[in-house]
Design a protein around this nucleic acid. Structure first.
Lengths: 158, 158
DNA sequence: GGAAGGTTACTCGGATATACTTTGTCCGAGTTCGATCGG
DNA sequence: CCGATCGAACTCGGACAAAGTATATCCGAGTAACCTTCC
């Protein structure tokens, strides 16, 4: 069970977009270059964020991506769902109803699926309770120079 | 992000072994037949449980698998770790340290990795706090006939 | 009749194929900017 | 000189290919029971 690596890229890119400033659109190529990521593949992930309504996109010259809403309105859960999809990690296939072990019509929810689902719910609850603004605040506390650094790099390279 | 289907099989098999009774070893083929699962592949998963010390195995005729300890000493976390491995789902690859975005020597922990890690910890905590005996109790409450059913099937098929 | 030895059948265990998801790449549709032409 | 039109370059978006992991299968090593043989 391994989470899509695009989740990490998406989270970093969202923070970078916030630090750059919401008025300007930034291309996927530039966002990718900042962390030496494959540009086309990052583009694919950002598309997913657009479909989820987290980012907005502009085509053509001077085009690119920008945040569709402020960081305090984007949760970790939003990003994970956008990239990974809505399905749960543990999916009950109801094997208890297959073969000789079948108990006729399925009675209540499978106890195993219930327990696993509750654990996953705790995970989702934690993700939904943390906004990207929380993460940004923590990141700026640990590396105060980050916002300036990306703004300056974008200016010199741009 | 999809969890290995073997986790579900392993959990059901452990409960079935408990219902059958700990004195007798049951072959992978028989456990698989009870839910119409591919026998050889279930065998592979049960091997992982043996390596983790959850099950014990006996070779040769009258051989098979049996619980290495009682259900109240096996947590959901134990089984998940045995099948899925010890690695976390979200793995920080430290892209913040790559390319122009690098902030020299890595200061503190990546804020993103920290937040994701805390969420995953909540999930693990929930899994570690639930034993297979809890699940068995819940399952018997919902389907009181299950223990008898598998014992009887094993006797007739046997 | 009882016990020892050999044989057989059955099991786990790991090495080996196959299917599928994730990762990575490429080209086309659409759009905006800039240059060119005309008034 | 100013405005409109045309061309060109740049961007996202989705279709296409490669790699890695999960799924499924097969065969060999080991072992316990059983049968045969001998005392």
């Amino acid at each position: 069970m391994r989470m899509n690596e695009g989740v990490e890229w998406a989270l970093h890119s969202c923070l970078n977009l916030a630090w750059i400033g919401g008025d300007r659109a930034v291309t996927a190529a530039r966002l990718a270059a900042y962390h030496e990521l494959p540009a086309a593949y990052l583009n694919k992930q950002l598309q997913a964020l657009v479909r989820a309504g987290i980012l907005g996109s502009v085509s053509g010259p001077k085009g690119g991506f920008r945040l569709a809403r402020s960081l305090d309105r984007i949760t970790l859960m939003d990003v994970v769902t956008a990239i990974e999809g809505p399905d749960e990690a543990f999916r009950c296939t109801e094997i208890r109803g297959q073969g000789p072990g079948a108990a006729g019509p399925p009675s209540a929810e499978c106890a195993i699926a219930g327990a696993m689902g509750r654990a996953e719910l705790a995970w989702r609850r934690e993700l939904a309770g943390r906004t990207l603004d929380d993460v940004r605040l923590q990141a700026e506390r640990q590396a105060p120079g980050a916002p300036d650094r990306i703004r300056r790099w974008l200016a010199t390279a741009g």
